[in-house]
């Protein structure tokens, strides 16, 4: 029990619950189950991208190009849909996912094969991918009436009152959980990030795990490209502008260590939900929109301080006395 209380995920969940209680004082409707569900639905894309980012960060890299990837794949699927409305939706989505995967692979290859630091690679591809959105669209928008109804409405379909967006994110959470807990590649990402040297000694190719982390990140970004466009029913160059920082922030708040090797699916999801609740609650409880940015900034700072205290390296315990005292 004491262990559970010390657990970072429990603490974060407690903070979120506390926050909801406080919000409920101002606006009781906010914690109505239907509204909480819609807050979750609204956070779906952030959750998926945060999980993708977590895999990359686990391997000691960072992917700043996710938002640009979302914009590019989103524009491409929107353009395909508006030009060929008769094309079946699964095919359109598949095109987005494949393109996103390829974009992720480009990042991954440069990190793996050329050994360029991930931050430099993705800083570059971030500009390039977003620039390509402009080139292919010629700066023009794809508007809702140019998209097919199936394209816009499929993720909105409700199953037992839950929207497709939420269901997809739940499936992705489950998939990433299985991947990180049950799949060798998932475990190797933890190992590679925790100690690249030890990983090498155990026969794990660190660069390869990084490549796959970027690939999965790209794949999920591609999926989110479609989700984003159908959610807001418009595609343009500045889609998801600056979203990469929110995604990284969600990971950081969720306890994913930027130094690699540490982070859980649950923590990451909670981190994204935390930001999701703040984003959705501030306008509702009537805090001036001008305060939003400062509040989320402070939250990030506080979260990293809290995490760093929790993570603080415990010295190698040599003394038996100390061992006993701790046990």
């Amino acid at each position: 029990m004491a262990n559970l209380l010390k657990n970072r995920e429990t603490q974060l969940a407690a903070v979120i619950v506390l926050m909801l209680v406080l919000i409920a004082f101002v606006n009781p409707d906010f914690i109505a189950p239907s509204n909480l569900l819609s807050v979750y639905t609204e956070s779906s894309i952030l959750i998926i991208l945060a999980l993708a980012q977590m895999l990359v960060v686990l391997t000691r890299c960072i992917d700043l190009s996710v938002a640009a990837n979302v914009a590019l794949t989103g524009m491409v699927v929107a353009m395909i849909n508006s030009q060929y409305p008769e094309l079946t939706l699964p095919l359109v989505i598949a095109a987005g996912v494949v393109l996103g995967t390829l974009l992720g692979m480009i990042n991954g290859l440069m990190v793996w094969k050329l050994g360029i630091p991930a931050i430099v690679v993705t800083l570059g591809t971030m500009s390039i991918y977003r620039g390509i959105v402009f080139l292919i669209s010629n700066g023009e928008w794809v508007n809702s009436h140019e998209m097919s109804l199936a394209f816009i409405n499929t993720p909105r379909t409700e199953i037992f009152g839950v929207q497709g967006f939420a269901i997809i994110s739940l499936l992705i959470i489950a998939a990433i959980y299985i991947f990180t807990e049950k799949r060798p590649l998932g475990r190797e990402m933890y190992a590679a990030g925790n100690s690249p040297t030890a990983a090498f000694y155990t026969g794990i190719d660190v660069g390869r795990t990084q490549f796959w982390a970027f690939t999965i990140s790209g794949m999920l970004s591609g999926l989110c490209g479609y989700l984003w466009i159908s959610r807001y029913a418009v595609a343009y160059v500045d889609v998801a502008l600056g979203f990469e920082l929110q995604v990284v922030a969600a990971c950081v708040i969720g306890g994913v260590s930027i130094m690699g090797g540490i982070g859980t699916v649950l923590g990451c999801v909670l981190g994204a939900l935390f930001l999701g609740v703040i984003n959705n609650a501030l306008p509702v409880i009537g805090i001036s929109p001008f305060w939003q940015m400062a509040i989320s900034g402070s939250v990030i700072v506080i979260a990293v301080i809290a995490n760093s205290r929790a993570e603080r390296k415990v010295g190698r315990i040599i003394l038996r006395k100390a061992t006993l005292a701790r046990g």
Partner: peptide, 27 residues
């Protein structure tokens, strides 16, 4: 000792040659 601080003892023993379930390939 080149091992992984953050991982469990089991995982340190089996990292890189995990035991898998025969059908699904899951760990």
């Amino acid at each position: 000792t080149v091992l992984f601080d953050e991982l469990s003892v089991t995982e340190n023993i089996f990292a890189g040659h995990y035991l898998k379930k025969p059908k699904t390939g899951a760990l």
